[in-house]
């Protein structure tokens, strides 16, 4: 019996240290790789702006502009605030003016946003969360 108990204790110690290490690693890694999702209005209201964030909104009409090659510029709006976004790369196929998109990147000192990734949703009726629909009703997903 004593042997069994010692064995169990050893197993338990081994398990807790392993799991503890793993959990610590997980949380540490998670903290570094979280990005906060905001709309342009929420971003303007933020006091402390994180280094990287996800910004969701609609691509404003007549705002898309191809600067040079794969460099583009467009304005992201939630009908209250708007932010100019710069992006270098291939836009998703569903990207167009009036479409809801989420851009990931960082806010610059001059108030513009440099995106490293642009996501357009596969559903053409999609609106990013927290945004009013075109008919003014609040989005279902925001609740």
């Amino acid at each position: 019996m004593g042997k069994l108990r010692r064995h169990r204790l050893l197993m338990l110690a081994w398990l807790t240290s392993f799991l503890g290490l793993a959990l610590g690693m997980l949380l540490y890694s998670l903290r570094d790789n979280l990005s906060v999702y905001v709309t342009p209005s929420e971003l303007k209201a933020l006091k402390h702006v994180p280094k990287s964030l996800d910004l969701g909104g609609l691509v404003a009409q007549n705002s898309f502009f191809r600067l040079h090659g794969v460099q583009v510029r467009f304005v992201l709006t939630d009908f209250q605030q708007q932010i100019t976004v710069f992006y270098t790369g291939i836009l998703p196929a569903l990207f167009r003016e009036g479409q809801g998109v989420i851009v990931s990147g960082a806010l610059q000192n001059n108030g513009s946003f440099i995106a490293t990734r642009v996501l357009a949703k596969h559903d053409e009726n999609y609106r990013p969360p927290h945004l009013p629909n075109t008919n003014g009703k609040s989005n279902k997903e925001s609740q």
């Binding site: 793993a22 690693m25 997980l26 890694s29 998670l30 570094d32 790789n33 979280l34 990005s35 906060v36 999702y37 905001v38 996800d54 990931s104 969360p129 927290h130």
Partner: peptide, 18 residues
């Protein structure tokens, strides 16, 4: 508590080690 997303880097950091 706010809206966040967990990016691929989290998984790419942890999974290879595991």
């Amino acid at each position: 508590l706010g809206k966040v997303s967990v990016g691929a880097p989290y998984f790419n950091q942890v999974m290879p080690l595991l």
